[in-house]
């Protein structure tokens, strides 16, 4: 499969269809992957594709605005490209999506947390367990999975953990989140790794007005994590990158999933599903629920 990918990449670069291909290469440890930027035909051989290719490369597209980019994208990554297209952050003709059929990637976080060996940690990421499709919704070229493993989804209720938290008492929930957020070190990796976080100036970096404390204290941390989640309302496509990179292990997906669940219930909206659809918060319906308003 990888040979096919390399041939395609070489062809794209040769025909000047793209200026740059963003893909994966082997990291220094010889096992994991890391992002790879190929702009010359001779570098194409660096490209790899396997279960270690966890990163959502759509995040790099904002670095190359205006250029023609070929990007290797899993089905979940493609959803974030869809949102970027919906929000006019990207021109469709500028991005050549090399879609890959994906049957799940490893749980990199668990590996980092000290799973004994690679084999043990090669369980799939939590996001993969509720994956809905192993084939990208849009792409210019599709690499089929020859082994036809299909999606690894366990067809479980994807909001199970959200529901579990919802039924706990208000005080318990506050305690839970305060404990989690108190560890936040405000490294902003969750923001930097998110393809949807493209504000030229993040509210967290603003000094005038300063919306919340810059220091890693509980109040500032609560505000930051809450506002990050709110800003992703209707835009988060659950690529799970924020939770994966969080060095202190805050379960950020529980926040994202909660909003995802709410907007499904309230507005029947699903992020990253359709390029033609208007973004959730830039549109409205006359019959949106308003019974909670006095």
């Amino acid at each position: 499969m990888i040979d096919e990918l390399k041939i395609k990449a070489r062809e794209l670069l040769k025909n000047k269809q793209v200026d740059l291909i963003i893909g994966y290469q082997r990291a220094s440890d010889g096992v994991l992957a890391m992002p790879c930027f190929v702009d010359r035909e001779e570098d194409v051989d660096k490209l790899i594709w396997d279960v270690y290719c966890v990163y959502n490369l759509a995040n790099y597209l904002k670095d190359y605005a205006g250029q023609k980019i070929g990007i290797i994208a899993k089905p979940c990554d493609v959803r974030s490209i869809v949102v970027l297209l919906q929000e006019n952050q990207l021109r469709r003709e500028n991005v050549y999506i090399i879609g890959v059929e994906c049957s799940g990637v490893i749980d990199e976080k668990r590996l980092r947390l000290g799973a004994k060996d690679i084999q043990e940690s090669a369980t799939f990421g939590v996001k993969c367990k509720s994956c809905k499709s192993s084939t990208p919704s849009i792409c210019d070229y599709l690499f089929k999975d020859k082994e036809k493993k299909g999606k690894i989804s366990e067809d479980k209720d994807e909001y199970e953990s959200v529901r579990k938290l919802e039924v706990r008492s208000s005080l318990e929930r506050l305690k839970f989140w305060e404990e989690e957020f108190s560890r936040c070190i405000r490294c902003y990796a969750c923001r930097q790794v998110c393809p949807m976080c493209y504000c030229p100036k993040c509210v967290a970096d603003q000094a005038m007005p300063a919306w919340f404390s810059k220091g890693a204290n509980l109040k500032g941390n609560l505000s930051w994590n809450l506002i990050r989640a709110i800003h992703l309302g209707g835009r988060c496509i659950d690529c799970g990158e924020c939770e994966r990179v969080c060095p202190v292990g805050i379960p950020l997906r529980e926040l994202n999933k909660k909003i995802e669940k709410d907007i499904k219930e309230l507005f029947k909206y699903e992020a990253g599903a359709n390029v033609e659809q208007k973004p959730l918060l830039a549109s409205f319906d006359k019959d949106d629920p308003g019974d909670w308003i006095k």
């Binding site: 992002p35 930027f37 405000r186 490294c187 990796a189 923001r191 790794v193 060095p247």
Partner: peptide, 13 residues
């Protein structure tokens, strides 16, 4: 540095 995300993990940790 091409793939660097400009986050604070390396410095804070």
């Amino acid at each position: 540095s091409k793939s660097c995300l400009s986050c604070g993990i390396c410095t804070f940790l």
